[in-house]
Amino acid sequence: MNLEIDSISLDYGAGRGLDAVGFTVAPGEFVALVGPSGAGKTTLLRIIGGLARASAGHVRRDGVDLGSLPARRRNIGFVFQDYALFPHLSVAGNVAFGLKVRPRRLRPSRAERRARVAELLALVQVAELAEARPATLSGGQSQRVALARALATDPSLLLLDEPFGALDPLVRRDIRVWLRALQQRLGLTTVMVTHDRQEAMEIADRVAVLRGGKLLQIDTPAVLEAAPADAFVMRFLGETLEFPGRVEAGVFTPVSSAIAPFAAPPGRAGEAVALIRPWQVRLSPAPDGAQIDETHPAGAFHRISLTLPGTGAAFEILSPAELPTPARGQRMRIELLTPRLFTPKGEPIR
């Protein structure tokens, strides 16, 4: 199933919630929508699902415009953050609900419904909970039941709105790995909203970054990391260090002499900012370098606090734990291994 989001806009009384957002989702693809609060992520998901109407633009499935179809006729599975399980129904009753309320001509027989429910509960690995009530389930179990209910009607598209938000970190990781494997096994086209950028980068085929109702960039996690569309995208998608400087004659020279200059794109000159991830640096002893203030273990890294000479700016880097850790008070020159350059306004310099 091919999904096309074509120039979707949504006007509010005081402004625009979505501004000509457009992209396509290929059959079987998993796309995650990320962005700060108010970016328009959930609004866009609701428009796709038929739970809200756009002011302009179109949502098409395999070339067919869905704009005139109500949500119940779009054949879309929806999983909400709070799962929205019916407390008065058993697990099996919740999963069967969508099948029971179908029009009579499309409604499976009771035996067919029982078989479908059993199949789905086995698929999501909670078959033993068929007669349990939602109040007795753990967060992870509730998540699986909500997904089984969404899959009951064989949807052509699955929409997930913060599906892991109510789970504790350990369960959250297990469930998202399991969900990704299940989605790939079923080949189900999926769009997910999440506030967790790391989660999006780990689970999705492509990630769409929104801000203020605008789509800034949509691409694979690898491309987003290697070539962010602007400084906001890079900052939003991970921890970032920033070093101001100037580009002249194809060289970026940082303001601080403790940071090594590096080659810049030719033909550009002026003020610039180098952005880099905290682990993409190399240290070497230098009498005029940054001062080591503190070091402490951080998993597979050592977190090292430094202060730049002159400016007194403090920052932290991550150094692989297997490398020697510099002593407190030692001075180090800093080499930026894979920096990205941006103008002061955040535009990329390439």
Rank of each mutant, 00 (worst) to 15 (best):
Met1Tyr: 06
Asn2Thr: 14
Ile5Ala: 06
Ser9Ile: 06
Arg16Trp: 07
Arg16Ser: 13
Ala20Val: 13
Ala26Tyr: 09
Val34Gln: 10
Gly35Met: 06
Ser37Trp: 11
Lys41Trp: 10
Arg46Gln: 11
Gly57Cys: 07
Arg60Thr: 01
Leu66Ala: 11
Ser68Met: 10
Arg72Ser: 14
Phe78Asp: 06
Val79Gln: 01
Pro87Asp: 05
Pro87Val: 03
Ala96Gln: 02
Leu99Thr: 08
Leu99Lys: 10
Arg102Gly: 05
Pro108Val: 11
Arg110Pro: 00
Ala111Gln: 11
Arg113Glu: 15
Ala115Phe: 04
Arg116Asn: 01
Val117Ala: 03
Glu119His: 06
Ala122Asn: 14
Ala122Ile: 05
Leu123Arg: 14
Val124His: 00
Val124Phe: 03
Ala135Asn: 12
Thr136Pro: 02
Gly140Lys: 10
Arg149Ile: 06
Asp154Gly: 12
Pro155Asn: 14
Ser156Phe: 06
Leu157Gln: 07
Leu158Trp: 14
Phe164Lys: 01
Val177Tyr: 15
Leu179Ala: 09
Gly187Ser: 10
Val191Lys: 07
Met192Ser: 12
Val193Ser: 07
Asp196Phe: 08
Asp196Arg: 02
Ala204Gln: 06
Asp205Leu: 08
Asp205Ile: 08
Ala208His: 04
Ala208Thr: 03
Ala222Gln: 14
Val223Tyr: 12
Leu224Val: 06
Ala231Val: 01
Leu237Tyr: 09
Gly238Tyr: 08
Thr240Tyr: 10
Phe243His: 12
Gly245Glu: 04
Arg246Ser: 12
Val247Lys: 11
Ala249Pro: 04
Thr253Asn: 07
Pro254His: 08
Val255Gly: 04
Ala258His: 02
Ala263Tyr: 05
Ala264Glu: 02
Pro266Asn: 15
Ala269Ile: 09
Ile276Gln: 00
Arg277Gly: 00
Trp279Met: 12
Gln280Arg: 12
Ala286Ile: 11
Asp293Gln: 15
Glu322Phe: 15
Glu322Asp: 15
Ala327Asn: 13
Gly329Thr: 01
Gly329Lys: 05
Arg331Lys: 09
Arg331Ile: 07
Leu336Ala: 00
Phe342Lys: 03
Thr343Met: 03
Gly346Phe: 08
Ile349Tyr: 12
Arg350Ile: 09
